[in-house]
Amino acid sequence: MFEHFRQPLISRRAYQHRLLGAGLLALCMIAFSLAMGMAGYHLLEGQPWLDAFLSASMILSGMGPVSAPQTDPGKLFAGSYALFSGFVALIGVGVMAAPVVHRFLHTFHVEEDGDDDVARAADGSH
């Protein structure tokens, strides 16, 4: 997915496409996680779809539960979904940050390689 450190830095347009792809991947992860949460709250707690959306989105965003689950399966689901949501948040941040961090580090390596080429040319050891 990312270019090797010996390859040149990709164009700004290609980098923007990479950022867009990372954003879409993160958005798909969040949408899938929200749908799972809604289904769980609807099926296990008997919440209407709108209430299930509210409950799932509050947990997924890290705001906490709207109301305490009433059934044992609902309690197990809510706890598991809260843990899962924490991982989704961390992974989403990683997916979004990966292209930025890679380009940042790659830029330093490209400059370093460029400096070595200049030094070798000046020494005549090219």
Rank of each mutant, 00 (worst) to 15 (best):
S55G: 05
S55E: 09
L24C: 10
R103W: 09
H42K: 05
M38D: 02
A56Q: 03
H102K: 01
L43V: 08
P73Y: 00
E112V: 05
A119C: 11
A68D: 14
G21L: 10
L19P: 00
F108R: 11
S67R: 14
R18G: 04
V118W: 08
S80Y: 02
D72N: 14
P8V: 06
A31N: 08
M1S: 15
A121H: 15
R6P: 01
L54S: 10
G64S: 06
A119V: 15
Y81G: 03
G74Y: 03
F5Q: 12
A122Q: 15
D117G: 06
W49A: 14
M96D: 04
E3V: 07
D116C: 07
D113C: 04
A122C: 08
L54M: 14
S125A: 13
L24S: 10
H109I: 12
E112I: 00
G37M: 00
A35C: 09
G23S: 05
M63F: 14
L90A: 14
A52W: 00
Q70H: 12
Q47A: 12
Y81I: 04
T107A: 10
G37V: 02
A97G: 02
H106W: 03
V88T: 14
H102A: 01
G64E: 02
V95I: 14
A97Y: 06
E3H: 13
G46A: 03
S33K: 02
M38W: 03
V66K: 04
W49F: 12
D72Q: 13
S57W: 11
R120E: 09
L76H: 15
L83W: 11
L105S: 06
Y81Q: 00
L25A: 14
A119Q: 12
V66F: 07
